[in-house]
Computed example of a mutant assay.
Amino acid sequence: MSADSPESITLVAPDGAQATLSLHGGHLLSWQPVGGVEQLYLSPRSEFAPGKAIRGGVPVCFPQFAERGSLPRHGFARTALWELVSQEQGQDDALAVLRLRDSDATRAIWPHAFELELSVRVSGRSLDIELACEHRGQPDDAPLQFTAALHTYLRVGDLDAVSVEGLAGLRYFDAVKQAEALQRMDLLLTGEKGVLDLDRIYFGVKERPLLVSEERRQLTLQQQGFDDTVVWNPGPDRCAKLADMPPQDWSQMLCVEAACIGRPIELQPGESWVGRQSLTLL
């Protein structure tokens, strides 16, 4: 499979804004707002193959974030085949809804009846990504508990000239140092090559807006339903060890991910949860 395979879906809003999704992983591959260039990083070495995760775009991490549990890293949703529920063009937007349900394969490693829906809406200079989960079990079934993230890879011109505003005052877990710390000011990557390898979970972000800035571009990110935000970049050393990413491309991307990690979501049978990440190019 490739990015332009029959398993890919292209959304085009009436104003020309575009997005491309893959049924493999329920994966957003591309977003081009009106008057703007590509906003997401997608590795040219991504493997579009069954059972393989795509490097870049917006992977769906579910029902486990990273190695925080007994499931495969980041869970199974990002390597599963989703189905297209609907695709439509409205008066001023374009929308697609994808779905993933439990199967023999998922129940073998995660014994829950569930339904995930991923909704992607594109219009003008904005993109909305919504992830919803429903516990579809019987009334006497056990609750299901999960962590999740929209693992958004932003394309940047040069990571060395990027800042992230809106995180000041928050505690974070540094996965590189395996320690918690306090973010005392905005995250400035300018001139700080030593900051990389960057892998942080910021807790309690909730609905506060974030601003990712570089020399000629500003992008706002806001989330609902997701309490936490992950900021990640592999840095040059770790990137060189990734088979599905060119070694120099660490400087062309920054992940800013809407996530629920610190407090896992728990659903009783019949209950639902919804999380959203909204991006706007200023």
Rank of each mutant, 00 (worst) to 15 (best):
M1T: 07
A3S: 15
D4G: 08
D4Y: 12
S5I: 01
P6C: 00
A13Q: 06
P14F: 07
D15K: 06
G16R: 03
G16F: 00
A19N: 01
A19C: 02
G26Q: 00
L29S: 04
S30P: 00
P33M: 09
G35I: 11
E38Y: 07
Q39G: 10
Q39L: 05
L40K: 12
L42G: 07
S43L: 11
E47G: 10
E47H: 11
G51L: 06
G51N: 05
G51I: 06
A53P: 03
A53K: 06
I54E: 04
I54V: 15
V58E: 13
V60G: 03
A66Q: 02
R68I: 09
R73N: 08
H74N: 14
F76C: 07
L81V: 10
L81H: 09
Q89F: 09
V97Y: 00
V97A: 02
L100I: 02
L100D: 02
D102M: 05
D104P: 10
I109F: 14
L116M: 11
L116E: 06
L116Y: 00
S119N: 12
V122T: 03
V122C: 10
S123K: 13
G124I: 06
A132V: 00
P139W: 05
A142E: 08
A142W: 06
L144W: 04
A149G: 03
V156C: 14
D158K: 15
D160A: 14
V162I: 10
E165I: 09
E165D: 14
L170G: 04
D174H: 10
A175V: 14
V176M: 10
Q183A: 11
M185I: 08
D186Y: 02
T190C: 03
G191M: 04
K193V: 08
K193C: 05
G194H: 15
V195E: 13
L196C: 04
D197P: 11
D199H: 11
I201T: 11
E207T: 12
P209M: 13
P209E: 03
L211K: 14
S213P: 05
E215T: 15
R217D: 06
Q218G: 11
Q218S: 13
T220E: 12
L221I: 13
L221F: 04
Q224A: 13
F226C: 02
D228Q: 13
V230I: 15
D237Q: 15
D244E: 11
D244A: 08
D244I: 06
S251N: 11
I261L: 07
G262P: 02
E266H: 08
P269H: 08
L281A: 12
